[in-house]
């Protein structure tokens, strides 16, 4: 299965790095470990395969995927919109979203709506963690992408382009669909969800 293959490659990405940085001895040790981890490569070939590993590491950076990205149709003239989506980390290393932007808005921020003694408040988050193999749901009344200062009118069926910066320096581009709240994707099951945030 493709997914398990890419996972085992990810698991070995640190070995590949040490291979690049260290001596031939370190490289051989790394390769030996790689064999233990059941990667079908002979030790001698492993170091020659640096380049291949590097490509795979680059691919591994897209281990975070987005689904169900949407922006509720907002009343006209409003300066603040919200975007919701689910981010999944198919990788074996924890990732974090550290920034978000949209060319269609002046600012975009990672926000958390919270309730304290029945009072709703918003918190600007510095990052949102996505555990290895886990997912994080941005949903109404919780995590959301705050979109400030729309540069043009919003239209049902249109899209909002979002660019998420991840803590490994990669960027995840997502097109969120503008739709009525009634047509929104069903909220995900929270039972199995793991996530964390760090405040500003």
């Amino acid at each position: 299965m493709t997914r398990s293959v890419s996972n085992s490659r990810l698991a070995n990405s640190r070995l590949a790095n040490s291979c690049l940085a260290n001596s031939r001895l370190g490289c051989l040790a790394g390769a030996a470990l790689a064999v233990l981890a059941a990667v079908p490569l002979a030790p001698a070939q492993a170091c020659e395969a640096h380049a291949a590993y590097k490509t795979e590491i680059a691919e591994a950076k897209s281990a975070v995927m987005a689904m169900d990205a949407w922006v509720p149709l907002a009343p006209p003239g409003l300066k603040a919109h919200a975007a919701y989506l689910v981010l999944m980390n198919h990788g074996t290393e924890a990732r974090a979203v550290t920034a978000v932007s949209s060319p269609q808005y002046k600012h975009a921020m990672l926000h958390l709506s919270s309730m304290k003694n029945g009072v709703a408040m918003m918190q600007h988050l510095a990052q949102v963690d996505i555990p290895a193999g886990g997912k994080v749901a941005f949903e109404p009344h919780g995590l959301h992408i705050m979109l400030m200062g729309p540069k043009g009118p919003q239209a049902e069926g249109g899209t909002v382009d979002l660019a998420f910066t991840l803590d490994d320096g990669s960027t995840l581009e997502v097109a969120a669909k503008v739709m009525k709240r009634a047509d929104a994707p069903a909220p995900m099951d929270h039972g199995a969800m793991g996530h964390g945030h760090k405040g500003m």
């Binding site: 958390l112 919270s114 309730m115 749901a137 949903e139 109404p140 009344h141 919780g142 995590l143 709240r181 009634a182 929104a184 069903a186 909220p187 929270h190 039972g191 969800m193 996530h195």
Partner: peptide, 15 residues
């Protein structure tokens, strides 16, 4: 209270 963790499970209308 169906809320888990940060009370994030306030889903869509009537969900």
């Amino acid at each position: 209270i169906a809320a888990v963790g940060f009370g994030m499970s306030w889903g869509a209308a009537g969900a």
